[in-house]
Design a protein around this nucleic acid. Structure first.
Length: 241
DNA sequence: TAGGCCATCTGGTCCT
DNA sequence: AGGACCAGATGGCCTA
């Protein structure tokens, strides 16, 4: 298909400056297509070579672009996997735009949940950090996942709270909550019911934390409005039946 | 059948 | 110079 597509639709309009060779060969190709006058044997030989080289170069570039898009799609699939949405063969996968918008809302929801958790911790422990059940207080190392650090010092979600000495910053409400619903025009659809958690979505990556903090029921699930999910929603209805 | 979504090709631009 | 990235164009597939 590639070669056919190349010949029939694009090669005649090639004027690329991707590199000098391609441009030079393209010009020769254009001039050849322009009048189609048969040239001498010397020209014919050069013409054939350049045409092959143009095609090879074009295929090479196309292949790179294809691979790049495939990698992008793989990353998108990886994002879909961690999204709190129903997975499965019978469920249509999220579109790209829906995945990105849903991911944004999900991050905002997690951020607000984190702030709420910080606030609760601040209220419960009131600054008596030494009595914190999770052991010694210290920096957990930023993005280290829960359970990754064998020392298990400070719960990752609480790092910022414990580092703060005042509860004023902790009780600053839920700044991100109001922005959960993205103002994206695609989100004009009616609010969707709470999205079902995917089978792969588990609290703390499937490792139940013994901390009492983690025993606190999670905040009410914020409905994640999804954009352009009308088709998906209808499919889910069928799945739910 | 129209519209949405996607894959692919392509030319241009920027970066290393 | 070569590769990465981006946006436009195009055509196919699917659904309402």
């Amino acid at each position: 298909m590639d070669s056919i597509y190349l010949r029939d639709h694009h090669l005649n309009s090639v004027s690329s400056t991707q590199n000098e060779l391609l441009q030079k060969m393209t010009n020769e190709h254009l001039s050849r297509n322009g009048d189609r006058t048969p040239g001498g044997s010397k020209y014919k030989l050069k013409k054939q070579v350049t045409e092959q080289e143009v095609q090879q170069l074009r295929l090479k570039i196309n292949g790179r672009e294809r691979k790049r898009m495939h990698d992008l799609n793989l990353a998108m699939d990886g994002l879909r996997e961690v999204m709190p949405y129903a997975h499965g063969p019978s469920v249509r996968k999220l579109s790209k735009i829906a995945t990105l918008l849903l991911a944004r809302n999900y991050i905002l929801m997690l951020t607000s949940s984190l702030d709420e958790m910080k606030r609760l911790v601040g209220e419960i422990y009131g600054g008596h950090h030494s009595a914190f059940h999770c052991g010694s207080v210290g920096h957990s190392g930023g993005h280290a996942g829960h359970g990754v650090n064998p020392t298990h010092q400070v719960h990752p979600l609480l790092g910022g709270a414990l580092s703060s000495t005042t509860s004023s910053t902790l009780s600053s409400g839920l700044p991100g909550l109001t922005s959960i619903r993205a103002p994206h025009p695609l989100l004009k659809t009616a609010p969707t019911p709470p999205l079902p958690l995917g089978s792969g979505f588990q609290h703390w990556a499937g490792l139940p934390c013994p901390c009492t903090i983690c025993q606190v029921p999670p905040p009410p699930h914020i409905p994640i409005t999804s954009a352009g999910l009308t088709r998906l929603s209808s499919e889910n209805k069928d799945v739910m039946k």
